[in-house]
């Protein structure tokens, strides 16, 4: 297990290096600079500002400096939010995004897995229809359609929940974003669980359990063990999907999370914010995938990391 962790960490270093390099140079190739919006800025002042952020240095020096700072865990100063470093911003924004993401994932699992199992065990009647409708909604109605509809329905018309904003994580503000974020994941998890459960239930070892007169509860429990493997391995992509989702959800619901800073940063050429997000997200995905692999080894005896 330790070896897997070490090997993955070693493998992550070139990956992260490639990501940082790619993001750095692609971003700098972009026409326009971070201070273009401030029209009429005196060329002299502009020069000073550029100098202050080291943007007048040759590109390779900027790159070297960035890497050097990054090695020390410093993501640099934000170019847009003056007086704030990217670290300062992320210190606030990252926990918000992670909170929404984790809640959405938990919600998706809590709904998707039991519903998928139920639909596999009893593939008829209300359960199956419910599963079908939920899947269809998750697939056919993307977050950016769901979110405005929810805002109008629950926020403006019914006035049950706030339309947008975060309010330091007041629970009422979390319901709509988390639901929006979870819906597409529910659909995938439901479908995966259903298919995996159906496959496992028709596996020969389940037939053996039946041939030995073991009760249904025992059989379903054992089938679930096999069926949860595909769901487990989906959690990696799910995390990536949730991160994508936060971009939309945070934009629509005006939540001061990572995704919103990223979009604003990309549009405003806030190099450091964009780079910081890309690096953070990449690290997050790598770590999460490692955790999933470790968990997989615990559940499936055929895959042991020793």
């Amino acid at each position: 297990m330790l070896r897997l962790v070490l090997a993955r960490t070693a493998a992550a270093i070139p990956t992260l290096f490639a990501i940082v390099t790619l993001a750095f140079f692609v971003m700098r190739l972009a026409p326009g600079g971070p201070f273009d919006s401030e029209r009429g800025l005196d060329p002299e002042i502009m020069k000073n500002v550029q100098h202050a952020y080291g943007l007048d240095l040759p590109l390779y020096k900027q790159y070297g400096l960035y890497l050097w700072h990054l090695l020390h865990g410093d993501l640099g100063p934000s170019l847009h939010w003056r007086d704030f470093s990217v670290n300062d911003i992320f210190k606030v924004a990252l926990p918000i995004s992670m909170q929404i993401g984790a809640e959405a994932l938990a919600f998706a699992l809590l709904v998707g897995v039991p519903l998928g199992m139920a639909a596999a065990i009893r593939p008829h009647g209300i359960v199956l229809w419910l599963a079908r409708i939920v899947t269809l909604c998750g697939i056919a109605v993307p977050a950016f359609i769901v979110a405005p509809l929810l805002q109008v329905g629950f926020g403006l018309n019914l006035r049950w929940l706030p339309v947008a904003g975060w309010d330091d994580g007041d629970w009422r503000h979390q319901i709509l974003p988390v639901f929006t974020l979870a819906l597409p994941q529910i659909a995938v998890i439901l479908r995966l669980t259903q298919a995996a459960m159906r496959d496992t239930l028709s596996a020969p070892f389940i037939r053996t359990l039946r041939a030995f007169g073991l009760p249904s509860s025992h059989i379903y429990l054992h089938a679930f063990r096999g069926a949860c493997l595909p769901v487990l391995s989906y959690l990696g992509p799910a995390a990536a999907g949730l991160l994508t989702g936060t971009v939309v959800v945070e934009t629509i619901f005006s939540i001061p999370g990572l995704g919103r800073y990223f979009v604003d940063g990309a549009l405003g050429r806030d190099y450091t914010i964009v780079m910081g997000t890309v690096v953070t997200v990449a690290v997050f995905i790598i770590v999460f995938n490692l955790l999933v692999d470790l968990a997989y080894g615990l559940v499936d005896p055929r895959v042991r990391h020793d």
Binding site: A11, A12, P14, T15, L16, A18, I19, L22, A23, V26, M27, L29, A30, P31, A240, L243, T244, V247, F262, V263, A266, L267, V274, T277, V278, V281, A282, I285, I286, N289
Partner: peptide, 21 residues
């Protein structure tokens, strides 16, 4: 493939689109 796989896709697409118009 593994290296590219760890790239945050959507973020890259957004960066690419912002950059190249």
């Amino acid at each position: 493939v593994e290296v590219v796989y760890a790239l945050p896709f959507i973020f890259l697409v957004i960066v690419l689109v912002v950059v190249f118009g």
